[in-house]
Design a binder for these strands. Structure first.
Lengths: 108, 108
DNA sequence: GATATAGTTCGATGAAAGTCGAATTAAACC
DNA sequence: GGTTTAATTCGACTTTCATCGAACTATATC
């Protein structure tokens, strides 16, 4: 398993990004990644089953919201901030600024 | 049928708004409403069945994206720009700025 | 090589959401 | 009151999407 392929910046679509964001768990992941440079899957797991999370990471990757860097057994995920800002200026700023305090799935 | 009730500005949620936007037809409607003060349902119909569109208007209304004003037999829809800007500053600016030229369902 | 660790893929299930014809409401107009 | 117009509601169908256990892959370590 060498690396994932991530969609090119130019090929990101607004609809795709909005779809990626339109789920409570994924939004939570995005909020978290908005506050740290990168995070492993495990660190975002909470009490949810791995397979569910893996699915959400895939959706986020395919919609262009995050990039996954593989190092050893660990997958380091980071927001594609620069790419998103370039393609959809102001969007992630607005989304991240709207983060509720103590965002914990229920408060979204 | 006097009037619809629209959710209060304070009760709008980011997730709700994102969900409202995460559909090609609804995004098209929102784009259109971003460029005109208001529009009747009929004027946004295109070639789609009325019942489908009615459903999308309902979703947009319930997520707080638009307001429907009834006048006679016609329903005038407008973006809740001020409310959205107040609650989620910059969000709609970013979304509307990302509108593809000639947005026509396929190009979203 | 065996084992542990991190994460994915598969496949089945269930729930949510979009589609659309037919019936319905409500106002406007003759 | 009957008809036209604008749009909704209902209900059935279909599709899409999330959930999650079990099996699997790949790396690291002993």
């Amino acid at each position: 398993m060498p690396e994932y392929d991530h969609p090119a910046t130019e090929s990101l679509t607004l609809l795709g990004v909005l779809r990626g964001l339109a789920d409570p768990i994924r939004l939570e992941i995005v909020f978290h990644l908005g506050s740290v440079p990168e995070a492993t899957c495990a660190s975002l797991l909470g009490s949810r089953p791995r397979s569910s999370m893996s699915h959400h990471f895939q959706v986020l990757r395919e919609s262009g919201l995050l990039r996954t860097r593989i190092q050893g057994v660990q997958h380091f995920n980071s927001l594609r901030r620069a790419d998103l800002d370039f393609r959809f200026p102001g969007l992630m700023d607005a989304v991240l600024a709207a983060r509720p305090h103590e965002a914990s799935a229920g408060t979204l």
